[in-house]
Amino acid sequence: MRPFNFITAESPQHALSLVAENKNAKFIAGGTNLLDLMKLEIEAPPLLVDISKTGLDKIEKREDGRIAIGTSVTNSALAADMNIRRGYPVLSRALLAGASGQLRNKATTGGNLLQRTRCPYFYDTAQACNKRLPGSGCSAKGGFSRLLAVIDVSDACIASFPSDMAVALRVLDAEIELCSLTGTRIIPIRDFYHGATTQPHIETVIRRDELITRIILPRPIGGSHFYEKVRDRASYAFALVSAAMVFLPDGSARVALGGVAPKPWRVESAEQLLTTDIDEYVRIAFSGASSTHENQFKIPLAKQILTTLINEHKEAMA
């Protein structure tokens, strides 16, 4: 870990101006991913700007029924919030399925969105990795790929995105508020992550001078919410495949999948098949997939998960 200055910002504006002055500075809230990477020198910012005390730690219900979640709200506070539990249970479930109690108490909304892959080659600085060092190659291709992406991959990178929260946000059509000194923009989470790319080190649309300030949830959509996470052990593990699924009152369904792509994987155009032809949904959702011998099981597993949830929902309705 390289030396760094640590400044606690007093406001979002203060935080942004500090980062504007130092182009390699990073924001830190909980630090559970950033510090992990800094110990390995995968990240080495010379300045950390602490945003945990800038007042972005609230969950506010707006008049129009939408909910604004501050970027430094902890994962456990968000999961436990009664408005979330009642109105967006898939989000609560997704958060509770992630990490451990200790990590959820420290990890924050913004940090969760921006966390990096857990690809073991990304993490081992002796190995070639285009995401960590552009142009160096991808050691995962042809290597241990069981936990990596099966779709939306490129020749440069097959990393999967590990966040559970983001999968739920994707199925809820959340929006991300980004602030800079020059203004604010709102990006639908659908457009936040780059997928397959020749530049895997650039993962989201966020600019260096921007800070995630809030996640905005639309008004509750109602329905039955499920977050199913399949992993190799019963807890404290990343997903092999996960699914955030909502069965809406009008009889339709929507789903976002985790563990299969460099971002939450949702194929809106095929969703009407969820309630009529699962095989066809899977075929379309994974068309163009580029799996490896080791991770190809994720596609049939995804189908099994969807089948399970559909059956569970039917039984609950009966």
Binding site: R118, P120, D232, R233, A234, S235, Y236, A237, F238
Partner: peptide, 9 residues
């Protein structure tokens, strides 16, 4: 994280 051993659950 990569070498998984059993947890409480």
């Amino acid at each position: 994280a990569g070498y998984e051993i059993p947890v409480h659950a």
